[in-house]
Design a protein around this nucleic acid. Structure first.
Lengths: 232, 232
DNA sequence: CCATCTGGGAAAGTACGGTTCTCCTCATTG
DNA sequence: CAATGAGGAGAACCGTACTTTCCCAGATGG
């Protein structure tokens, strides 16, 4: 947690002039700190990509980022903390924006939901080592720090909730459940399917993206208003 | 893996008389071995129950079961292996039979499926420490040994597949997907929901068993043939 | 009844990786 | 320039899964 707050932040109840002065005197330090922090994160991502996992040692991170273990532990409480930071970063800065872009490209609200499902499945089920490593890591996170995982994934689920709410408002769906519930259930479905796909790829009856979408779409009770809205 | 095969087993292509003789000469040894193996498993279950997790050390297992680390490692290749054995044992001897009983009590094939969903959710989401520990462990297993998890869970999914096939044959459902696909998807949904429920219990929009069933049932496209079949 | 062999108990030892500590350098600042 | 404090290098520490060594009791075979 502490690791995710960039060091150098000040409490909000400090007089403006004081804050500015201190800010100025700290700007360089803060910049360097951010650079070093970024160095750790970058090194971790590199290692995850190369080794397709999170089995690298802290020593490797330290060597790679040309820093010391001391610095490492002054930034991150633990190795696990670094990994959480990496995960949060990637979700917030890569996954969500891409999904948002994909969905924004659709005019029909239901197509947006479909784009979300396909996009997420494609993104996380890809064979890129980094994606694989992160997806696998999310399982460990679910076991050891569910709250962290929950927090990291929340923006993603919020996006989906929005999409579903829009679809419901446009009367393109008629689900007995609320947008939030459906979002969580659909998200679970997609993620679980992706896990199955990644972890046991050579399984006969694995689920394709289409099947996944068919399954997830049914509970939304899609109403075929296309013709109606076209005629209006 | 080796740990899961009870020691003393013989290949199948041995003459019967020979097998019997050897069997006889080995029966005592095998019995003792089984007892010791069971001792380890029992100790592990006890510890999981008491500590609601798998954080106990091998030393604790050894102390509890009044045996030595040497014996432990002569039975189980690793601590992880023991845990897998425990998991498989519990699923095969507890979970599946109970689910089967629940489902058998239903006359309508679709009610059987509902009983499965409710039963599984209730069983694994219960607050009993052992259930909690095992459910949590299954996440680790998914990360570190997906094949083992797959194998342990297979009988459960097969049961669900049967139920769905029966429901489809009775034309109580009209899903575009096959029974195997639906089984896997529903299973995923339930398990993921249970994980969410266990791991982040104090989350506003968590999913109830009813909602879960509503969501899972829709993709089956339930056909209301109750009246029809009654009238026939 | 004795020799031998084997399974298994007790417990010290190893490997390894995360975490911490100590010492030291060097840039910054008054 | 002297004081201060951040941070680099890496040795040390520690917990824990795993290994190995030693040895004995009890079965087996002559």
């Amino acid at each position: 947690m502490a690791a995710l707050t960039v060091p150098g932040g000040l409490p909000d109840d400090v007089p403006e002039w004081k804050r500015q002065t201190v800010d100025r005197s700290l700007q360089k330090a803060r910049l360097r700190a951010q650079q070093r922090l970024q160095g750790f994160v970058d090194a971790a991502i590199e290692l995850m990509t190369e080794q397709a996992g999170t089995d690298f040692t802290v020593q490797e991170i330290v060597d790679r980022s040309r820093m010391s273990t001391r610095s490492f532990y002054s930034f991150f409480e633990s190795k696990e903390n670094l990994l959480v930071a990496v995960y949060e970063t990637v979700v917030a800065s890569q996954v969500v924006p891409r999904l948002r872009a994909l969905c924004a490209a659709q005019s029909d609200p239901l197509d947006a939901v479909r784009a979300y499902v396909y996009g997420l499945q494609e993104m996380t089920a890809s064979n890129r080592p980094a994606a694989r490593a992160l997806t696998t890591f999310s399982l460990r996170l679910a076991e050891t720090r569910p709250e962290s995982l929950e927090r990291a994934v929340r923006p993603q689920i919020e996006l989906l909730t929005e999409l579903l709410a829009v679809a419901a408002a446009a009367e393109r769906t008629d689900s007995p459940l609320g947008a939030a519930q459906n979002a969580r259930l659909i998200h679970n479905c997609v993620i679980a399917a992706v896990h199955a796909q990644i972890l046991t790829p050579n399984l006969g009856d694995s689920v394709t993206a289409e099947e996944l979408w068919i399954f997830c779409a049914q509970p939304l009770r899609v109403t075929e208003t296309r013709e109606v809205s076209a005629s209006v």
